[in-house]
Simulated scan of single mutants.
Amino acid sequence: MRTIRKTNNLNQIKFANIIGISQGTLSELEQDILIAVKENFNSHIEWWLIFGDTPVAIEPTQ
């Protein structure tokens, strides 16, 4: 997300408004939160990003 935002010369506030999320959420997403969730919960991030929910219940990896 950071790369897309910077390529388009947008600050976090403007980019967040365009995609319909808060600046705080964008900041968290740009800090690799999604990667941490994927790695620790064996989650299907692609599914979650597209549909807003995971297809199955997931448990943290140990």
Rank of each mutant, 00 (worst) to 15 (best):
31 Q>R: 13
39 E>P: 04
5 R>M: 15
35 I>G: 03
42 N>D: 14
32 D>E: 09
2 R>T: 08
51 F>V: 07
42 N>A: 10
26 L>W: 02
12 Q>L: 04
53 D>R: 14
1 M>R: 01
27 S>H: 08
25 T>S: 03
54 T>K: 02
28 E>A: 06
20 G>K: 06
13 I>R: 05
26 L>R: 00
7 T>D: 15
51 F>C: 09
22 S>M: 03
47 W>N: 10
55 P>Q: 07
10 L>A: 00
36 A>S: 07
21 I>C: 10
20 G>R: 06
39 E>C: 08
4 I>K: 14
33 I>P: 00
42 N>F: 07
6 K>C: 14
40 N>H: 09
17 N>W: 05
56 V>E: 10
54 T>N: 10
47 W>C: 10
56 V>G: 07
58 I>T: 12
55 P>S: 06
45 I>C: 08
4 I>R: 11
35 I>C: 06
12 Q>E: 06
25 T>D: 00
51 F>P: 01
11 N>E: 01
58 I>C: 09
48 W>L: 13
17 N>P: 03
8 N>E: 12
45 I>Q: 06
54 T>H: 08
46 E>F: 08
41 F>R: 02
57 A>D: 15
47 W>M: 11
13 I>N: 02
57 A>C: 11
32 D>V: 03
10 L>F: 09
12 Q>C: 02
35 I>Y: 03
25 T>N: 03
32 D>S: 09
14 K>L: 11
